[in-house]
Simulated scan of single mutants.
Amino acid sequence: MNNKLISIALTGLLSSTIATSAYGADLSITGRIQAEYSGINIEGFSSQTSVNDPTFFSSWGLRVFEDLGSGFKAVTMIDFGFNTNGGPIGSREMYVGISKDSIGTLKFGRTHSPFADFAGGWTIDPFVYTTLQATGSGGTMIASANGLGSGSFTAVNSVVRFDSATFNGFSFAALLMPGNANTLEANLGGILGGQGPTKGNTGGKDGEWDVQFAAKYAMEIQDHKLEIFSGYSRDNVSSAQKKIMAVNLKTEEVVRIGGAWSYKNFRLQGQYDFISNALGAATCSDAAALGEIGNESTRQCNTAMNPGGDGSIWFASGQYRIGNATLVAQGGMTDANNTDIFASRKAKSFTVGALYDLSKRTNLFGGYQHVNVIDKNSTVDRDRDTWTVGIRHLF
Rank of each mutant, 00 (worst) to 15 (best):
240 A>Q: 14
244 I>G: 04
225 K>Y: 03
250 K>M: 03
242 K>A: 12
224 H>R: 02
240 A>E: 13
252 E>L: 04
250 K>V: 04
253 E>N: 13
238 S>R: 00
235 D>W: 07
252 E>N: 07
230 S>F: 14
230 S>Y: 11
234 R>C: 04
238 S>I: 00
229 F>K: 08
232 Y>V: 08
245 M>W: 01
225 K>M: 08
242 K>Q: 15
245 M>A: 14
246 A>L: 11
235 D>E: 15
239 S>A: 11
238 S>Q: 00
230 S>R: 06
253 E>C: 00
241 Q>V: 01
231 G>T: 09
236 N>I: 09
226 L>V: 12
237 V>F: 05
253 E>T: 13
245 M>P: 01
254 V>I: 14
236 N>M: 14
224 H>S: 06
253 E>V: 06
225 K>I: 08
227 E>Y: 03
249 L>D: 08
250 K>G: 10
248 N>L: 02
235 D>H: 06
244 I>S: 04
246 A>H: 10
236 N>A: 15
245 M>G: 04
252 E>P: 11
225 K>T: 11
235 D>I: 13
248 N>M: 02
224 H>E: 00
233 S>V: 12
248 N>K: 05
231 G>L: 08
235 D>K: 09
226 L>I: 13
243 K>R: 12
226 L>R: 00
227 E>D: 08
248 N>T: 04
250 K>A: 08
254 V>K: 05
229 F>A: 10
237 V>C: 00
252 E>A: 04
237 V>L: 07
243 K>T: 12
224 H>W: 13
226 L>M: 04
236 N>S: 11
225 K>Q: 12
224 H>T: 06
243 K>A: 15
249 L>V: 07
236 N>D: 13
